[in-house]
Amino acid sequence: MEWESSTIWYWIILACTGIISGVLGYFFGKSDTPLAPEKSIEINSLEIQNAKLKSDLETCKKRLDTYTTKTKQLNFDSAINPSKKKSFFFDAKEAKAAFGKTIKENDLKLVEGIGPKIEGLFHNFDIKTWKDLAETSADKCQEVLHSGGKSYRIHDPASWPMQAKMAYEGHWEQLFEWQEKHRAGKY
């Protein structure tokens, strides 16, 4: 009889331990997983970002194809007529159409981040055209800024040669879009 009562208690304790473990496991497992609506909102957000990135990629591919086609044509024209070199000309109407204001040829102030005083610093270094600035390294641009004193060192000229190249080559819409996207809090 004594043996039977200890066996019953053994099974009761074992069953209680299993039930308690199961309940605790369920609650611990449930607390670690985010709610389904939270996941779906995050997934939707990521899908939207992915769609935007795919759209941007397609736009870039189309622009690259257009640029490649134009470059091949220029190279073909140069091969046929070597005296005809790759040259760009300033089209004030196209520039005005993209920017909505009159643009003067080789105005370095068109580059986002360059004002009249910084333009003067570049002129002191004989950098007076978009082509000159496009062919200038970011390090050289930094050197020009340092020549103006401490107050000019806060500027970041990393994109200035790229912007100048877009202006020199007449890529007005791309330049305007780039500047709008990267405008440093100026409205």
Rank of each mutant, 00 (worst) to 15 (best):
M1E: 13
E2P: 07
E4Y: 08
S5F: 11
S5A: 14
S6F: 11
I8E: 10
I8D: 05
Y10K: 13
I12Q: 00
I12V: 05
A15H: 00
C16V: 10
C16W: 01
T17H: 03
G18V: 07
I19N: 02
I19P: 00
I19V: 14
I20Q: 03
I20C: 05
S21D: 03
V23L: 11
L24A: 14
Y26K: 08
Y26N: 02
Y26H: 07
F27S: 06
F28G: 11
F28T: 09
F28K: 13
F28H: 09
K30F: 14
D32E: 15
T33S: 15
T33P: 02
P34A: 12
L35Y: 04
A36E: 12
I41W: 04
E42H: 09
E42R: 14
I43F: 09
N44F: 04
N44Q: 13
E47L: 12
E47F: 07
I48E: 11
I48C: 07
Q49G: 07
A51I: 09
A51D: 06
S55D: 08
D56M: 13
D56K: 15
L57V: 10
T59K: 15
K61E: 06
R63Y: 08
L64E: 08
T66W: 05
T66N: 15
Y67G: 14
T69A: 11
K70W: 01
Q73D: 08
Q73K: 15
L74N: 12
N75I: 15
N75P: 00
A79H: 03
A79I: 04
A79G: 03
N81S: 12
K85T: 11
K86M: 09
K86Y: 00
F89G: 08
F89I: 11
F89R: 10
K93Q: 12
A95H: 03
A95D: 00
A95F: 03
K96T: 15
F99Y: 13
K101P: 03
T102Y: 04
T102R: 14
T102V: 09
K104L: 09
K104S: 15
N106S: 03
N106E: 01
N106R: 01
L108P: 01
K109M: 12
K109T: 14
V111N: 03
E112I: 08
G120S: 06
F122R: 01
H123D: 05
F125Y: 06
W130R: 03
W130C: 01
K131E: 12
K131V: 11
L133N: 06
L133T: 02
S137M: 07
K140Y: 02
K140H: 05
Q142M: 05
Q142K: 11
G148T: 04
R153D: 06
H155G: 00
H155F: 09
D156I: 07
D156S: 10
S159Y: 02
M162Y: 13
M162E: 10
K165P: 03
M166L: 14
A167C: 10
A167R: 07
Y168K: 12
G170W: 04
G170I: 08
H171S: 15
H171V: 11
W172H: 12
E173F: 12
Q174M: 14
K181G: 09
H182W: 08
R183M: 08
R183E: 01
K186H: 02
